[in-house]
Every structure is written in C-alpha cells, then in structure tokens.
Design a protein around this nucleic acid. Structure first.
Lengths: 224, 224
DNA sequence: ATTAAATATTACAAATTTATTACCAAAATA
DNA sequence: TATTTTGGTAATAAATTTGTAATATTTAAT
C-alpha cells in the first residue's frame, strides 16, 4: 500500500484531496509543516503533497529539511501552488521526481499527477507480469505466453486467466467467478462459466503442454 | 551514464545543482579548481559545470589547464557566471561545444543547457530520436521514417505515434490516449481515437511493411 | 453395471467492439 | 481572404466475442 502525506492548512482542500486519494491510497494528513516532519519520521511515506504557502514553517524550509535527511531525501513531492506564476520560483528546487499542481485542480488532474509520480518513482510496485509455472501474463502489453509461445485470448479469457493467476491453486466457484469477472450485477447462466473455461483451456493448452486448469468437482475451478 | 563534474565554491548553489542533476546524471562535486583537476584525472568526466569566480585558482586558469591536456581537452564546459555582462569576456575562451549559465537560474534552464550540451557533444548517447523496429521519429526535426522512407504525419498523428514510441508494447486505453494527447479536460467522443488510429495506420503502413499498431480488443491500442 | 449428477463440447444467433467512410467545421497556410 | 490541411462526429460495415441451449461425456455412488 502506498502512503501519501498531505500537508495543507486549508481544511476544505485537505478534505477534497483526502476524499479523492483515499480510494486508492492510504492518506495521512498534517495541517502544518512541523507536524508533517514528525509524520515523515514515524511512518514510511511514499509521496508528499505539499502546499507551498503554509503558515509557520514555509514549504521551502520544509522541503530543505526533508531533502537533507537521508531517510526522507528521496521521497517525491508534489507542490500545491496557488497560481501558475509560482512555478518559476519552484523550478529551482524541484528534482526530476517532483511535480506541481496549481489550484484549483480537478479530480482527474490530481489523480493523474499522483499516479504519474508514483509510477515514475516506484515502477517495481506496479508489477508488470504475473507468472505461474510456464505461463506468464504481461499486464502492460496484455500479452500472454506459454513458455515462449504467444497466446491470443479474447477479453473474457484474459480476465479469467488473470484472475486465476493472482491466486494460483485457489479454487473459485462458478458464482465467485461470475461475480469477479462479470460483475456482481450480471445475470447470467451459471454454466456460462464452463464454456469460458473450456475456451480458455483450448487456448492455453498448446500441443505438448500440460493442463493448467483443474476442475474441482461440485466446487469450481483452479489454476494448478 | 553521464558523469558531470561541478566546480563551485558556494555550497547552496552546489546543492541545488546536485539535487537537480542527480536524478538524470551521475554528479561529482569539487569546491575548488585544484580538486576539480584531480577528479578530471581520475574519472571519465563528460561535462564540467564551472563557476567562473572561484577562490584560489581562477576559472580561467582551470580552463586553460584542461584544454591543454589531451585527456581532458574535449570535455565541454558550462560556465556559471554571476551576471550577464560576463558573457562577453567569456566568449573569447569558449569553444563551440561550451555554454554558459547566469545566476540565478531555474531548474528548467539548468536542465535545458546541460541536456543541450550533452546532446550536441554526445549525440549517440543522448539522441533525440525515438526508434522502434523500423520506425524512427526525430523529435528535433519532427520527421518520421519507416526504414529509409519519410512519412508525413499531421500534428495529431505525430503526437500519437510519439506517445506510442515512448512506451512500445504498452497498451493504452482510449481514455488514456485522450488524456495524454488531447489533454485531461478535453471533452471528445471516445471513438475519435479510433479514427486517428486509423489515420496513423494508413500513414505508416507503407506498402510491404508490417502493421505496427495492435488493437487490444476491449482495452485499447499499442505499438507492437 | 446402472444411474444420476456434474461437467465438457458444440454450434449458432445475438451482442459488442472495432474499422471504415464521408462530411462538415475549424485551423493553418499561402 | 482564399485555399489547403487537419480534426471531430456520426453513420454504416465488418469482425470478433459472448451467452445459451442442446447434446455428449465423464464421474462417483449404489
């Protein structure tokens, strides 16, 4: 889980940010720089959203402090500025990893910036491939391989295989699969799952390769 | 990796430079010219950032020394000067490869100068062209080639292709492409992307060349 | 061996998704 | 301003995927 520290004195902006980010990340709040520094010390913070204009200790001195300390120096920072004009001043202090966001910002902008910085800084956290035995699914390119051979799957087949790969060996009932792959509100024949399993099997069981999907009678299916 | 030697006595400027450059380059620091000379001898330096006003050995004599020695004579130098006026005096000593930077400078300026000098001096290490398979995009001249054949693209087609070339094989959803190419706040039909993909395909799929843009059904497109 | 229940297989029509085209508006260029 | 190029939309065609139902096969218990 990614921990984001938000340092912002304006309660309404704080709440907007918290509301938007907390669906995907764990959010910590500080309403001044001193409190922010304390939190940085106590918890492992992955990203800081920093209001550039703070009462008391300024954003600039906060930045200097965390960049000086080894433990915190590599945490990326997104600056929240009031106007576009500020960007020039900021320019001198930001590193390549950092970014800024001008008020007012939309949900889309906020999320895009945060996600971009996180992807850039922690590429390894966004695991790109799922592997099990000789099968691998590359989530970035959406490609599936059995050993070296590429396998073409339809969207539902891909989702199904991906779901199995997240928890290999676990048996999923047909109901569970319908809920997860098709959505809770889908209203399909339960036997539809059988047909899709059949299609997935046909696609991945290339000549000379072993069966990967196990039928657990009266229970469901698993990747095994 | 590019090694940059920074010779600067002012600790705060040194830190700003180090902070900014270290995200992209390997940075070595000297706080006087003598130390700088030593480092030049020991390590392979690709670029020197030299403060023109140094205590002890001056920037000028440092420059003369390294230009005299074979091993170091072709290292490009960016001079850091206090005022714009200095530029005239400098002009007499700089070679075509060199450049200067006046204090105070922004992150943007610093990076732009450094990258420009490096591109100029080591075009092979830092080419401004994107390549994938037989397609290449020159970002400087905005020219696109399929093998040897030049391809003419409209602005949107160019942006689209460029975006694909930055992350080949990665699948982008139509939403992502709209956000990246058209901007977060654009309010366009999602199917507009299809039409542009079609146009780009038509433009780059010259007779006898393979399809480069892959459709990933229900997901998006990728360069592949 | 018989039987009932569960699963596998198949074929087909419907639904979904993408490709292609033409057209008009907007923007760039001469 | 006139002309050309580019860009966005909607309509239609084409392709692929999906859900279902019917039938066959397998499994396990008696």
């Amino acid at each position: 889980m990614i921990n984001i520290l938000v340092i912002e004195d304006d309660i309404s902006i704080r709440e907007i940010i918290n509301y938007n980010l907390s669906s995907k990340f764990s959010v910590l709040i500080a309403d001044n720089a001193e409190e922010g520094l304390e939190i940085c010390q106590e918890k492992k913070i992955d990203l800081i959203l920093l209001d550039w204009m703070l009462p008391g200790m300024s954003g600039l001195s906060f930045l200097r402090t965390i960049k000086k300390r080894d433990l915190t120096s590599s945490i990326p920072v997104i600056f929240i500025t009031a106007k576009h004009e500020e960007e020039d001043k900021l320019a001198g202090f930001t590193s390549g990893a950092d970014d800024y966001l001008s008020k007012p910002f939309s949900h889309k902008e906020l999320m895009a910036r945060v996600e971009a910085v996180i992807r850039r800084t922690y590429p390894e956290k966004f695991s790109k491939t799922l592997n099990y035995k000789d099968i691998s699914v590359d989530l970035q390119s959406h490609k599936v391989f059995r050993s070296k051979a590429e396998i073409k799957l339809s969207p539902k087949e891909f989702d199904l295989l991906k779901h199995f790969l997240i928890s290999p060996k676990q048996v999923f009932s047909r109901e569970q699969l319908l809920d997860k792959i098709w959505g809770l509100d889908s209203d399909l024949e339960i036997r539809t799952v059988d047909v899709h399993i059949r299609r997935l099997r046909k696609a991945i069981n290339l000549e000379g390769f072993s069966e990967l999907i196990r039928t657990v009678r009266s229970t469901g299916y698993s990747l095994d």
